[in-house]
Design a protein around this nucleic acid. Structure first.
Length: 194
DNA sequence: AATCGGATCGTCT
DNA sequence: GACGATCCGATTG
């Protein structure tokens, strides 16, 4: 397991979104280690209207404009958290990759307890679900994901998977852009592909 | 299988 | 005061 270096995130947001597929999210919580393989992502760049940073930097979205490789976490619909990794090239003001689904690996029992369910295929197959399963809240806002700690991202040598691009989910603007990426045929996606 | 509405609250208009 | 990068359970076909 190797940490992903900061330079990994210092690239075009869409490229990073694709290359994060197959990587591992590691969560250390109360001495329990929970991990999952990233199987679904979406790219958001602050020059397009679906991005939280489109209208400029605010207190709540400031991480999107901060150093790459850190966590941007937001709270939505009154009950869900979602995890992004800040990623952009040098000429872009802000951008991030939404982690939409994981394939659970380690700490599955703990995830089941946090999610209050026992179906492995329903544990982390959505942005709100995986945040609940890994106990990701705004306390982790801005955490550096390139360093070992409560939350980070690693590469276990998983072979670069074949991927499919689709439209992003749940947005009302810029719906035509094909910026959602999934590992082809993976059974832990938030939504089946047509 | 597909669609619909309720839950619930931080953020911006 | 409205709405959102969602989820879940209920209802309908």
């Amino acid at each position: 397991m190797k940490l992903l270096r900061r330079s990994f995130y210092q690239r075009n947001t869409v490229d990073v979104a694709q290359d994060l597929l197959g990587k591992i999210v590691v969560r250390e919580f109360n001495n329990v280690r929970m991990t999952g393989r990233i199987v679904e992502t979406e790219a958001y760049s602050c020059f397009e209207p679906a991005c939280h940073g489109f209208r400029g930097q605010t207190e709540s979205n400031k991480a999107l404009f901060g150093p790459v490789g850190h966590a941007y976490i937001y709270f939505i619909y009154g009950m869900h958290y979602a995890l992004n990794v800040v990623a952009r090239d040098d000429k872009t003001l802000g951008g991030g990759v939404l982690i939409r689904a994981l394939e659970p690996l380690e700490g599955i029992e703990r995830m089941e307890k946090l999610r209050k369910i026992h179906e492995i295929h329903n544990l982390t197959n959505g942005p709100g679900k995986l945040a609940q399963a890994l106990h990701i809240t705004k306390k982790l806002y801005g955490v550096d994901l390139t360093k070992k700690g409560e939350l980070y991202i690693a590469d276990d040598g998983f072979k670069k998977p074949s991927i499919i691009a689709t439209q992003r989910i749940g947005i009302s603007k810029a719906q035509d852009m094909m910026w959602r990426f999934v590992i082809k045929g993976n059974p832990f996606l938030s939504k089946k592909i047509k």
